[in-house]
Amino acid sequence: MNVLLDNLGEFGSRFLGTVELFVLSAVASLVLGTVLAAMRVSPVPAMRVAATGYVTLLRNTPLTLVFFFFAFGFPLLEIADLSFFTLAVVSLSLYTAAFVCETVRAGITTVPPGQAEAARALGLGFGQSLTLIVLPQAIRAVVPPLTSVQIALLKNTTVAAGFSVVEAGGIYQVLSERGYSTLVGLLWVALGFVVLITPLTLLQRSLERRWSASSGGAVKAGAR
């Protein structure tokens, strides 16, 4: 208990860093992922190819390697002087966007084709059918698996600990410098993540239960 209470400020600021990383990357990855999903179903072949290439590339690269490129490689290019925090947000967003894209795309396919056909029959174009008819209906199938993707993102923020970003995973360094037990400290961090993630999991379960009965079928999502 002492490990937690004596270093409450440190734990607090680090978990705040985790939450900041999570919120910024979650918003960015949702926006980018949805745009990519729209590109993947668009009538323009070049856009489909570009989005598919992006998703294949990022889904098959370890997140640590993405971080490696941005934290160590990007500064070598001398484009802009960005902080590790910004680079961490960029890495997490780019990586997670690929998974968001796959989930949204799978959600789009659960909307009955009659909906899009009716939209076309009314004279709506691709953009209108997608944004007014298909995506709003896809939300129901997409939100539970998207929550899983975002839970994975929340856990992935700890990778940033290896690249000198202030967040919860890196607390062991401070604790061992101050002479506290790193094991106890890290167990508190683990508990902190359980506390952060449990409401998200409960939300996801209840959404799944409420919506799965009436919707077409749930979308499977990778854990990471």
Binding site: K155, T158, Y172, S181, T182, L183, A190, F193
Partner: peptide
Amino acid sequence: VEFFRAVPLVVLMFIFYFGMPSV
């Protein structure tokens, strides 16, 4: 199962590598 699914993998690795020596 629920515990290990909720704890980030990095934290698990840190617990075993940095934490265990303290016991």
